[in-house]
Design a binder for these strands. Structure first.
Lengths: 161, 161
DNA sequence: AAAAGTAATGTTATGATATAACAATTCTTT
DNA sequence: AAAGAATTGTTATATCATAACATTACTTTT
């Protein structure tokens, strides 16, 4: 059964997957990048849910649908490609990966992750960026990247308690 | 040779270590916690530098100074104790641990980490917290914890380029 | 002070995540 | 068609972390 997500339940989560794949395809076409069947399939698997997915979960899915078992480098290389071109993000504190909600422009992601349903919501260009830039500036620190992962309870899960 | 850190070079880094151990001792005395020799030694090792340190680095140090080799659970249990009581923090994106600069009051840490010298600077109660609280509130999200790790170049390292 | 109970540590094994190195294949260009 | 480059397959291993149970040490009760 397909898990339902409050924010995509109207159009159906399949729409999220289709959109992500289409955008990725267009982007790769434009930038002369090769969105191979493997890379596309891994991206699709990552998008199967809005919950961060582990590399070995992806591996297991690939193995189950191929005749032969896949090996870790197969998955990690595809993930590296997708990360490098901003199509997915890595959630460091979960050792997991999730589709990028805003692949159009390069950015550092920020997530609100529910500890119950594991839904990971990506915040677009929020005030958090500005606060970080400000703190870094005060310290004379040049920002190159960041890991922002906020854990807690999402609104729907709180309502259920 | 002892690595020098710009912000503690005046008093000497040994002062950082001594302070951290003293504060930990006082806190454990007050709260009836047992800062055993092992836990104290692990805390001291974590404080050997201002760079996040891996569990297996700590393990290697312990092994080299004991007659017998130490096993991973020995270190991880000590780290768990120190984490639980706010004496150290974990840097998720580096799988590493660092002494807490503000163990007096419970808090969620935020770090500026230099990719060259690996110095990890902990920011105390910054505007970043407020921005996160604000964004979370807008999303109806209740914050329970957070991982904030900013990477880039610290001021001294930029000056050297 | 001895016994019982609890907390901490030792020990062995294994789970979970990730990468190195090289071979084979496929795609692209010449 | 051949050469070169990129991708994927394959084997092995590195790295990070915990489960499960035995032993030791500390604390409380009697």
């Amino acid at each position: 059964m397909q898990k339902k997500y409050s924010f995509c339940v109207a159009s159906g989560h399949q729409q999220c997957i289709d959109d992500a794949l289409n955008i990725a395809q267009v982007m790769c076409d434009e930038e002369q990048l090769r969105l191979t069947p493997l890379r596309k399939r891994v991206l699709e698997l990552v998008w199967q849910s809005h919950q961060p997915m582990g590399a070995y979960d992806i591996l297991a899915q690939l193995t189950s649908e191929e005749g032969r078992p896949a090996a870790p480098p197969t998955v990690y290389r595809a993930l590296d490609f997708l990360l490098e071109h901003g199509l997915i993000h890595r959630i460091a504190s979960l050792n997991a990966f999730i589709g990028c909600a805003y692949p159009q422009q390069p950015h550092q992601a920020q997530f609100l992750i529910c500890r119950l349903c594991r839904f990971a919501r990506e915040l677009p260009h929020s005030a958090i960026d500005a606060a970080i830039a400000d703190e870094a500036h005060k310290a004379g620190f040049t920002v190159e990247g960041q890991v922002i992962e906020v854990f807690g309870l999402c609104a729907p899960c709180q309502a259920e308690l």
